[in-house]
Simulated scan of single mutants.
Amino acid sequence: MSDVGDIVDPLALENQVCFALAVASRSVIGLYRPLLEPMGLTHPQYLVMLALWQYAPLSVKDLSRLLQLEPATLSPLLKRLETAGLVERRRASDDERSLAIVLTGEGRALREQAEKVPVAIVERLGMELTELRSLHQALTRVIGAANGVHLAAQ
């Protein structure tokens, strides 16, 4: 592993991990837009739906933790999804103070359309699935390191 001091200009834009991550994030999310628009979803709403398709019902607290979003950021997303008829917010049966997010029939049905999204993204990226899996593992380690959790190399 090379030392940061070995980099000719450590402040050069092209040497910045944050720059590469920001551009990659915007670029990849941009590929999702035309796939999600017919479904009536934005990318953040799609992430909420992915979590709910996998784990529903979820408390707002658990959904916030799972998506690593502040409840104040998550709340407007949930309101729009509820207005669209995809989710409902209900008082949790085991804790009246907690809101549970549940999928409606329409929200559950949307999953079938969403199942086409990952394949389309892989095709649009034109990258091998093994390369994308390696990238996902590396990004997961970056997220852990940035959050103070040092994961063993996988």
Rank of each mutant, 00 (worst) to 15 (best):
S2E: 09
D3W: 07
V4R: 10
G5D: 08
G5V: 05
D6W: 05
D6K: 07
I7P: 02
I7S: 06
P10R: 11
L11F: 14
L11P: 03
L11V: 12
L11H: 14
E14S: 13
E14G: 07
Q16I: 07
C18I: 11
A24T: 10
A24F: 02
S25Y: 09
V28H: 01
I29N: 06
L31Y: 00
Y32A: 03
Y32M: 09
E37M: 08
G40R: 06
H43R: 07
Q45D: 07
Y46H: 13
L47H: 04
V48I: 06
M49Q: 03
L50C: 13
A51K: 01
Q54K: 15
Q54M: 10
S59M: 03
V60C: 04
V60R: 06
K61T: 11
D62G: 05
D62Q: 13
D62L: 06
L66P: 01
L67C: 10
L69Q: 10
E70T: 07
P71I: 09
P71V: 08
A72K: 14
A72L: 14
T73S: 14
P76Q: 09
L77C: 05
L81H: 01
E82V: 01
E88D: 10
R89F: 03
A92H: 05
D94M: 07
E96N: 08
E96Y: 09
R97L: 12
R97M: 08
R97A: 11
S98Y: 01
S98A: 15
L99G: 01
E106S: 15
G107R: 01
G107S: 09
R108Q: 13
A109K: 14
A109W: 03
E112K: 15
E112A: 15
E112M: 11
E112Y: 07
A114I: 02
A114P: 02
A114W: 00
E115M: 14
K116I: 04
V117E: 02
V117H: 02
V119S: 13
I121F: 00
E123M: 09
R124I: 00
L129G: 00
E131N: 03
E131Y: 03
R133A: 09
R133I: 03
S134Y: 03
L135V: 04
H136S: 14
Q137L: 15
L139P: 00
T140H: 10
R141F: 01
R141D: 08
V142Y: 10
I143R: 14
G144T: 04
G144E: 06
G144K: 07
A145P: 00
A145Y: 11
N147D: 12
N147Y: 08
H150Q: 14
L151P: 00
A153F: 05
A153K: 13
Q154G: 15
